[in-house]
Design a binder for these strands. Structure first.
Lengths: 206, 206
DNA sequence: TGATTATAGTTAGGAATCCTATATAGTTTC
DNA sequence: GAAACTATATAGGATTCCTAACTATAATCA
C-alpha cells in the first residue's frame, strides 16, 4: 500500500472522529444525539423506510427502531404505513421535526470554513476525488447505494459542449456543471448495472 | 457557500458513517467496540495520557475512563503513574493488547482498495488537500493538535533541491518526499505558533 | 390455491457508551 | 500555606446499539 494511502486513511480517520464529535455538540444543542440528528435531517428532506435509514447510517434495524421511537416520543417524527407494502413503515418528520432539523448545521462550521479557504481548483479536484471514492465503495458493496448523479439513470455526463455546464439531467431536463453534481439527490433513480458502469466511465475519463 | 463545499461535506459525512460502521465490524471481531479498538490502536503505538486520548477521540474524559477500565479488565491495557506528574495516568497497552491491536485493520479494506485504484497524481493531490484541511481545523481549535510534520519543529519543507525528496526531518536527519509526510508521527514536537505558520506557508505555496 | 420461504419491522434483554456533575489527589500560584 | 487550577475517577442515569426471537406481510412455487 502506498504511503499516501496511509496518509489519506489517517486523515479520514481524524475527520470521522471530528465529525462525530461535532455532531454530539450540534445535535446536543437541540437535545438530540448524533444518530437522532442525522435521522431527523434525512427524513426532513425525504421520508424513508426504516431499513433504508439503518443501512445509510450503518446501524442495525433494531437500533434504528429505538431511535425512531425516541424521535416519535418527542413529536419530531412519525411512522406511517406504506400503501404499497404492508410490512413497510415510512418514517417522516413532523412539522416540529423539520423545524428542529432546519436548525441543525449540515456540516461543522470549522470544516466549511476550511473548505472555503481552499483554491477553487483544489476544491473541485477534492470533490471529484471524493465522489470517485464513494462510488468505488458503493461498487464494492461497502456502503449502500447512494443517490448520486453518477449512478443515476437521469444523468448524462458531457452531453453539452459548454465547458461550464457540460452535464445534463434528464429528470429536470437541464444542463449543469461539476459543481452542481449531487451526492444525495431527491430525484435519484438507480441506473441499471451495465448502464451505471458506462456512465461512470464516460464521466471519469473526460 | 460553494456547491462543491456542499458536495465535499456530504461526502465526508458518508465517509464518517462508513468509517464508524466498519469499525463496529472490525473491532467486533476482537470482541471490542469502535472506541475500544481505536484506543487500543493508539496506545499500542505510543502510551498516552487519559485526557490526551479523550481529546483525540472527541469524547469526554469520563467516557474514556470507562473505556480504559474495560480494556484494563480484559488485560489489554494498563494505567501507570507518570513519574513527572502525580495526577497523570499514562495509558499503555499490554503485550496482549498489542497483539490484539496488530490484528485490527488500520482502515477499512474497501477504502484502501478504492484509494489504490486512483491515479498517483490524484492520490497525491487528495493527500495534500486533506493535510491542509486537518491543519486548518487544528488552527481553528476544532480538533486537538495533531502530530503532523507540517506542524512539527523538526520539519523543514523544501530544504533540498531533489524534487522527489525535497523535505527534511531534523529529528531523524533525513530527506523525504510528500508521500512520506506523517500525519501522526511518534517523534512529533509542536512547533511554536509563529514558526508553525511560517512552515506551513512555505509548504503550501511551493 | 396453499404451503413455504423471504422480507420489514418490532420487541426483549442486556452490555456498554457517553453524558453531566461531583469528588479526590496532586500541582502551581501568589 | 491557602487558593486556584489541572488530571483523573466515580456516581448515576439516559440512551445506544447489539443479538435473538417474534409478528406480520409479501413473494415464490408446487
Amino acid at each position: 500500500m502506498s504511503n499516501e494511502t496511509r496518509q489519506i486513511t489517517t486523515a479520514f480517520q481524524k475527520l470521522a472522529l471530528f465529525w462525530r464529535a461535532s455532531q454530539w455538540q450540534a445535535a446536543g444543542g437541540a437535545g438530540l444525539n448524533p444518530t437522532q440528528g442525522e435521522v431527523l435531517q434525512r427524513i426532513s428532506r425525504r421520508s424513508a423506510r426504516l431499513g433504508e435509514l439503518a443501512a445509510m447510517l450503518g446501524i442495525s434495524q433494531a437500533s434504528l427502531s429505538d431511535t425512531v421511537s425516541s424521535l416519535e416520543a418527542r413529536g419530531l417524527a412519525e411512522r406511517r404505513p406504506d400503501p404499497e407494502d404492508g410490512r413497510v413503515r415510512r418514517i417522516e418528520a413532523t412539522a416540529a421535526g423539520r423545524r428542529v432539523a432546519a436548525d441543525l448545521p449540515q456540516a461543522p462550521a470549522a470544516l466549511e470554513r476550511a473548505l472555503e479557504e481552499m483554491s477553487d481548483t483544489d476544491r473541485a479536484a477534492l470533490a471529484r476525488s471524493l465522489v470517485g471514492i464513494i462510488r468505488a465503495l458503493q461498487e464494492a458493496d461497502a456502503i449502500p447505494v447512494q443517490r448520486m448523479c453518477v449512478s443515476c439513470r437521469h444523468f448524462r455526463p458531457f452531453a453539452h459542449a459548454d465547458a461550464a455546464r457540460p452535464h445534463h439531467c434528464e429528470f429536470v431536463d437541464a444542463a449543469f456543471g461539476d459543481a452542481s453534481l449531487r451526492l444525495d439527490c431527491d430525484d435519484h433513480e438507480a441506473a441499471p448495472a451495465g448502464e451505471a458502469a458506462a456512465i461512470w466511465r464516460r464521466f471519469e475519463t473526460a
